[in-house]
């Protein structure tokens, strides 16, 4: 993907200590997909991740903000426990489930981390609520989020 695409992409903003991401897309789902890509770029220098493994993720939360933080945190957990990294994420429209919570369903494709191929960069400790912004407009959603490193 082209991360500089004006309708769907992401960039890294200046933050005194950490990684501050601005991601955008035509929908909230697309903007969140771009957050995942920005997370992978923070952690790995080599951007060749192949589609070898498919993983379904379902997360539910009370608000869009906590849903986003919990969803991205899941990638840190999967990396630490299974060493899986992803380069392709497709998120279905976010719905309110039977327990009244927001539910995200994503199909993620990637492979097992190989330090020679993917070149580790910086470890992300956590996805934070710090100055978290989700700005939804009719044809565009923009997210600002900070990763603690």
């Amino acid at each position: 993907m082209d991360k500089n695409n004006p309708s769907s992409g992401y960039e890294f903003l200046n933050h005194p200590a950490d990684v501050w991401v601005h991601a955008w897309g035509k929908t909230l789902e697309e903007a969140i997909e771009n957050c995942v890509y920005s997370l992978m770029e923070t952690m790995f220098e080599g951007n060749i991740i192949e589609n070898k493994i498919t993983r379904d993720l379902i997360i539910e939360e009370n608000t869009k903000g906590s849903l986003l933080v919990a969803f991205l945190s899941e990638f840190l957990y999967i990396f630490d426990t299974e060493y899986l990294i992803f380069n392709h994420v497709k998120i279905d429209p976010i719905v309110k489930n039977s327990s009244g919570k927001l539910e995200i369903h994503a199909i993620c494709q990637g492979e097992v981390f190989d330090p020679l191929k993917h070149i580790p960069d910086i470890e992300v400790k956590a996805i934070t609520y710090s100055y978290l912004e989700i700005k939804e407009e009719k044809k565009r959603t923009a997210i600002k989020i900070v990763y603690d490193i």
């Binding site: 009370n62 608000t63 906590s66 945190s73 840190l76 630490d80 400790k125 996805i127 609520y129 603690d148």
Partner: peptide
């Protein structure tokens, strides 16, 4: 390491729910 990171993440989430 990730032990502390996850405990903080878990706690913030629990506390966020509680405050909500």
């Amino acid at each position: 390491r990730a032990m502390g990171h996850q405990i903080c993440t878990d706690s913030l989430q629990e506390i966020d729910h509680l405050m909500h």
